[in-house]
Design a protein around this nucleic acid. Structure first.
Length: 620
RNA sequence: GCCCCGAUAGCUCAGCUGGAUAGAGCAACGGACUUCUAAUCCGUAGGUCGAAGGUUCGAAUCCUUCUCGGGGUGCCA
């Protein structure tokens, strides 16, 4: 990775200057341990930035913090960046308050006004593999897939925006017994004359459930009845059902063997299921404005030939051991061993995930592998990461360990604070949920713009709905559960997706208005920034935080931090828009400065929303 | 039993490596529309940061114990 070639961020410049000053004031402190603790001031009366460095250093070296602060500012050179720092800038226990020079803000904005919006792209970027989406064959997407798709795509976009090489991988559940059950069922009904070419995913999904129920033996219930000395009739009935289920299960297992050995008809039916499912799911991804396509699909089936050799490798190297008939990998610090082969010889999801880590690191070259998966899988990933490490499957080519991260997320809840389900108690279908959001958005758009023709309203409603749903999903910390509430997320006011779209619309409308009124907008691109109103300065300072924010949100795999920033930026634009006339501004220099500021705000807003994967609109 | 995660205003949430008087939005109340799209902006009110100890100049943040809620826990994924 390259070092920063240019720093546009005043905070970064201050960080460098403070580091030098601290180094001079406290030579005993190794320079690499210096932390300047530069943060934006919370209140304008304390200036624009503050350094909280004096207190921790004073504590470590048993000094008086205010005296140390005084010593630091003696060595501090903030020329060209901030107003001179004097004793008066030291406050409280030793805070050092900094007020930026107006010209420093202006030139920083000017430096940010480029194609990358001030973000430094590394020359030699790392590769990051992001595990996203993860649908299952023969099943419709439900709310659970919303988060892995939306958050996963946003994390991938964040890394892309930082200039990293990103490879998305959708770990499609396309293999194993559940799929074999459906294959078996489809072959049965095809033999009865049903045309499989017209099957929809909805029908497949219904069939999946039927087949699951058919193969599920209610052994426990029978035991209970027998124990309680229950009805003989019920007992017989149940015993029959269990016999049927066992028979169905046997057929499914036989079908799995067929499928795995490449039986032509089994494979053809499997392919049909695959095509139906993926066509529908990828179209939902597209609707969600998530960059997940066919090329990102890496289903469990693609690992099928890699599992046996992998397990053999682990046996040969004595990493895996037999335990009670199963083959396990035991890792230090984890009580539960990772089972990679069942007593009956079958492989498990841990086996596939080990193969996936190996492929992602060794073959795809991932320096970082991020799993955007439900928090309930945290033990599983802890085990698999540890096992992969023990086996050395996480070694990148130069022999460095890849960084394996489980970017876990919480559950989507209903109004009752329980996992969101449909009225019939099943997982809520994602398409239904999105349709509902669109219909509500459409009603509001129509209400706000009664004269807007239907042809224009439809795509706007769609975008507004997706923005609302996605922003609601992205804006709270990943790990937290959140309650799905259409009224709140589509409220069009406050911290919502639609509010952000509206902020962007208002920025763009300034240029449309200028053009309508024949105001010259050809000469603002290189105009100097003249920030005269407090709201302009606040807006400018907010803009300047963008590059470092992208970096920190990306490193933390936390799109919610970018959401907070976008909302803060939109909120800072509000007062500016209210107080500062742009098109009608009399002063040429200020008008052009404001045009340029608006232009920058618009581009940062659009860039941030694009990085979150939220679609935008021209009007709404 | 053991392990993981959460708890901040009436509601929904920020608060990143400990920093100044804990911040937003919604809801409530008051104000600003011949508008650069008011889907907005300004203001008022609202909090023993789950509880109790501890660490220190300073704790919502770190440590310990506990309470409540959610999840996981060897042959499903």
């Amino acid at each position: 990775m390259s070092t920063q070639t240019q720093t546009i961020d005043p905070a970064a410049i201050l960080d460098a200057r403070f580091t030098d000053a601290i180094h001079a004031a406290v030579p005993d402190l190794p320079i690499e341990q210096i932390k300047t603790h530069i943060t934006a001031s919370r209140q304008p009366k304390f200036g624009d930035f503050q350094s909280n460095c004096a207190m921790p250093i004073a504590k470590r070296f048993k000094m008086q913090p205010r005296e140390l602060a005084a010593k630091i500012i003696e060595h501090l050179d903030v020329s060209g960046v901030a107003e001179p720092i004097t004793q008066a800038n030291i406050a409280g226990p030793g805070f050092i308050n900094v007020t930026l020079l107006p010209e420093a803000i202006s030139s920083a904005l000017g430096a940010m006004d480029n194609d990358q919006l001030g973000i430094n792209i590394p020359d030699n970027p790392p590769t990051v593999v992001v595990d996203v989406c993860g649908v299952n064959l023969a099943k419709q997407m439900h709310v659970g897939h919303l988060r892995s798709t939306v958050i996963g795509d946003a994390i991938a976009r964040l890394y892309e925006r930082m200039g990293y090489k990103v490879i998305r991988q959708s770990h499609v559940g396309d293999w194993g017994l559940p799929i074999a059950m459906v294959v078996e069922q489809l072959i049965t009904i095809e033999d009865q004359g049903v045309d499989l070419s017209t099957l929809s995913l909805g029908e497949l999904n219904a069939m999946y459930k039927v087949v699951q129920a058919k193969c599920k033996a209610e052994t426990k219930a029978l035991e209970l009845i027998q124990k309680a000395g229950g009805h003989a009739k019920a007992e017989i009935e149940l015993a029959e059902r269990i016999a049927d289920a066992n028979a169905a299960m046997e057929k499914a297992k036989a079908r799995l063997v067929n499928l795995q050995s490449g039986d032509e008809r089994s494979v053809a039916v499997w392919q049909r299921i695959y095509d139906i499912t993926m066509t529908a799911c990828l179209s939902t991804c597209k609707r969600l404005h998530a960059d997940i396509t066919d090329e990102h699909s890496a289903g469990e089936s693609t690992y099928r030939d890699e599992l046996a050799p992998l397990v053999q490798d682990l046996i040969d190297r004595k990493i895996a051991v037999e335990d009670d008939g199963a083959l396990v990998v035991k890792c230090e610090g984890i009580k539960e061993p990772t089972i990679i082969r069942k007593r009956d010889g079958g492989f498990l999801y841990a086996t596939t995930d080990l193969a996936a880590i190996k492929r992602r690191v060794n073959k795809l070259g991932g320096d970082i592998v991020v799993y955007v998966v439900d928090s309930r899988q945290s033990l599983h990933f802890k085990q698999v990461f540890a096992a992969a490490h023990k086996a050395g499957y996480d070694k990148t080519n130069p022999g460095i360990d890849a960084k394996l991260t489980h970017a876990m997320f919480g559950t989507v809840l209903g109004e009752d604070n329980k996992p969101l389900k449909s009225r019939s108690g099943e997982n809520l279908n994602l398409t239904d949920l999105l349709d509902e959001a669109v219909s509500r958005a459409s009603a509001t758009v129509a209400e706000k713009n009664p004269e807007m023709p239907e042809a224009e309203r439809a795509p706007i409603s769609e975008a507004v709905a997706m923005a609302a749903v996605k922003y609601a999903d992205l804006s709270s910390e990943r790990i937290k559960d959140y309650v799905m509430n259409f009224d709140r997320m589509l409220a069009f006011e406050g911290d919502t997706g639609p509010y952000l779209l509206y902020a962007l619309v208002r920025v763009q409308s300034i240029f449309r208005k200028a053009s309508e009124q024949g105001v010259d907008t050809s000469s603002y691109h290189n105009a100097p920034f003249k920030l005269v109103e407090p709201s302009e300065k606040a807006l400018a300072l907010m803009l300047l935080r963008y590059p470092s924010l992208i970096e920190s949100a990306g490193q933390a795999c936390e799109p919610s931090r970018l959401c907070s920033f976008v909302y803060d930026l939109a909120s800072a634009y509000g007062p500016f828009y209210d107080k500062c006339q742009v098109v009608k501004c009399e002063d040429d220099a200020i008008r052009n400065s404001r045009f340029r500021l608006c232009d920058l705000v618009g581009r940062v807003l659009a860039d941030a929303l694009e990085t979150l994967g939220i679609p935008t609109v021209e009007r709404m």
